[in-house]
């Protein structure tokens, strides 16, 4: 098992249903800066024409996760399917993981004195097969699935659509697959020109190799 998520970010309307569903599902600490999941917004204007791009995001559950490597107490760890978790009882709040994370996906939960982050709703997987954020989304931006299962909706989708990653250069092998939009203009406007576009056939061996390297840690929980 190798859990991942595809994001058809062009569907996002910034309604923030995902943020609220996440908080309710996982009991995330209240506070505007306490988010396991968020919608990134870039806006500006080109020749007087305003534009807004939305990038819904959360923890990438990187296969080669620097937050796990850097943790001195093994509080940050993997569980089955390569989900990156924090064991709050081991966390000493050194915040090394927060520094190491290229995606700023972690924050301090002041109610438990530990770092908190997205868990891919691992407690829901058996029953629902989806995360709370995917289930609640009005325009269905997200699709959660298992990269190792050729028959799951996620892999079927990734075989059909091209995709890119955020901050691929950090080489953490992230698992949020941003789907390339069909519309050329929107693609040009919302994806940096240095961003690499990938296909399933080309990325699959790279991800398998990365998984082989670190998946022995995945059981430790």
């Amino acid at each position: 098992m190798n859990y991942a998520m595809a994001l058809d970010y062009q569907n996002c309307i910034n309604c923030k249903a995902c943020e609220v569903a996440c908080k309710e599902e996982n009991g995330v600490q209240l506070g505007a800066d306490k988010q396991r999941i968020w919608v990134g917004v870039t806006e500006g204007s080109i020749f007087g024409h305003p534009f807004v791009n939305l990038y819904p995001s959360q923890c990438n559950h990187c296969i080669d996760a620097p937050c796990v490597s850097v943790c001195p107490t093994h509080a940050s760890h993997y569980i089955d399917g390569g989900i990156v978790m924090v064991d709050p009882t081991k966390c000493i709040l050194c915040k090394g993981c927060m520094e190491a994370c290229p995606y700023d996906a972690r924050f301090v939960d002041d109610t438990i004195f530990a770092v908190d982050k997205c868990t891919f709703c691992h407690h829901r997987i058996d029953e629902y097969g989806t995360t709370a954020c995917q289930a609640t989304c009005p325009t269905k931006v997200r699709l959660f699935g298992d990269l190792d299962d050729e028959n799951c909706d996620l892999v079927k989708l990734l075989k059909k659509r091209k995709f890119f990653f955020l901050k691929e250069g950090e080489k953490t092998v992230p698992k949020l697959f941003y789907l390339v939009p069909e519309d050329e203009n929107f693609l040009l406007r919302s994806v940096g020109k240095d961003t690499k576009i990938h296909t399933w056939d080309e990325i699959k061996p790279i991800y398998d190799e990365a998984k082989a390297k670190r998946s022995k840690e995945w059981k430790r929980s």
């Binding site: 309604c15 249903a17 609220v20 309710e24 609640t136 269905k140």
Partner: peptide
């Protein structure tokens, strides 16, 4: 928790931020 009920053709398996915050 409030989860979307996929059976209703009008709401099509979703709850928005307000719906989720109904609690």
């Amino acid at each position: 928790k409030l989860d979307p009920n996929p059976l209703f053709p009008k709401s099509k398996n979703m709850l928005c931020a307000r719906g989720d915050a109904g609690i």
